[in-house]
Amino acid sequence: MAKMNITRSWREQKVILKRRFSFLSDGDFDFKDGQKEAMHDNLAVKLKKTRTELEVLFAELQTY
């Protein structure tokens, strides 16, 4: 995933995503050390977005 300026905590980002996509659960955001990329891949599949679209979505969360 491309580097971006993070202005929101991960917790805030999860809350925003869960509000926007009500079918997401806390479990969709779980990952172990070194497995964050796999979580992103799973989110992309669940949201039916490409990896690039997911990166754009995360970047948009920083502007809310």
Rank of each mutant, 00 (worst) to 15 (best):
T63V: 10
M4T: 15
D41F: 10
K14D: 00
L47T: 04
L24P: 04
G34I: 14
A2I: 08
S25I: 04
K14N: 07
A44F: 04
T63N: 12
T63R: 13
M1L: 06
L54A: 11
H40V: 03
Q13F: 00
D41E: 15
V45P: 02
F23L: 11
K36H: 11
R11V: 07
L24H: 08
K18T: 01
V45R: 15
M4P: 05
R11G: 00
I6E: 02
G34K: 12
S9M: 01
R51W: 01
F58V: 10
A2W: 02
M39L: 07
Q35C: 09
K14T: 10
D33A: 10
H40I: 06
K49I: 13
S9I: 03
W10H: 04
F58L: 15
K49S: 09
L61F: 01
K48Q: 13
V15D: 11
M39W: 07
T50G: 13
T63K: 15
A44N: 02
E60V: 03
I6L: 05
A2T: 04
N5W: 08
R20I: 00
L24T: 06
D26P: 03
Q35Y: 08
R51I: 05
F23K: 11
K48M: 04
Q62K: 07
V56Q: 13
K36D: 12
R20C: 00
S25K: 13
F21R: 08
R19V: 00
V45Q: 14
F29A: 08
E53F: 08
A59K: 14
K49H: 12
K32D: 13
F31C: 02
K32C: 01
S25R: 13
Q35R: 14
L24N: 05
N42C: 12
E53R: 08
S22I: 04
